[in-house]
Amino acid sequence: MATSLITKSLSDLISERRSVRKYDPTYKISKEEINDILKEAIKAPSSSNLQPWRFIVIQDEEVKKELRSIANNQEQVETASAVIAVIGDKEMYKSVEKVYRSAYEAGYMDEGSMNRLIENTNNTYPHAPEEILKNIASFDAGLVSMQLMLIAKDRGYDTVPMGGFNKEQFARKFDLPERFFPVVLIPLGKAAAPAHNTTRLPLDDVLIDFI
């Protein structure tokens, strides 16, 4: 089991994380450690704290082979120790009572605040257009995905976010209910070759203004 690199700063992790596409197929990460990584990742923020992310963790070798064909034959899907599929939930508001009652029972809010937040959510989210709900879920899935990748790097593992796969085929393969949709695949494992370095546009090119 890899140990957390507790001496690393967040700045170090951000600088050192790279998208790795060559993995050691013999290296295996335990289910228990993947669970630990996910438990940390889901502390990410989300809209109205509705946490519209779900996960499918794929470690079975035969299933990874099938997934490779869905993912445009990208080898990292098959050679990584696991592939974590991040799924968005368009009906995230159906968890509202569980979310806010949990916060109330933990002492983070009073009962009146809990009831008000539940009522406001039920008056708003179910009536929003599907496109808006999907955008919210996709945005929040991005937040949890980035957090997951940094946590993995802190534990000595490598990842790559993959949007390039057939999402319709994936949904059929894993029999996703209509409310769920795949957002990104994240292979997780040990690099077998260094990632390619990349550059970023200068800040002056992307910072529109200070006002």
Rank of each mutant, 00 (worst) to 15 (best):
L150F: 07
Q51E: 15
V86W: 04
F180L: 14
A103S: 12
N135M: 12
R155H: 15
K134L: 02
K153D: 00
A195R: 00
L117W: 11
M109T: 08
N122W: 11
E62K: 15
H196P: 01
E119Q: 13
T199N: 00
S81A: 06
E40G: 10
D204K: 15
K43C: 12
P161G: 04
I186M: 04
G112H: 09
A171E: 12
L143C: 06
P126I: 15
L150R: 06
L13R: 01
P129F: 14
L207I: 14
K39G: 00
P182Y: 06
L176D: 04
D158A: 12
K43G: 05
I14V: 15
V63N: 01
Y108L: 11
I118R: 05
D209M: 08
E130Y: 09
V57S: 06
F165H: 02
Q76F: 05
W53T: 00
N73L: 02
D60V: 15
T3V: 07
E168S: 08
S113Q: 07
G164E: 04
L201D: 03
H127S: 15
R21Y: 08
R17A: 13
D110A: 00
L67R: 02
P25L: 01
E91A: 09
S145E: 01
E33I: 02
D12Q: 13
I56W: 14
K190F: 14
I84Q: 05
D204F: 09
S9P: 03
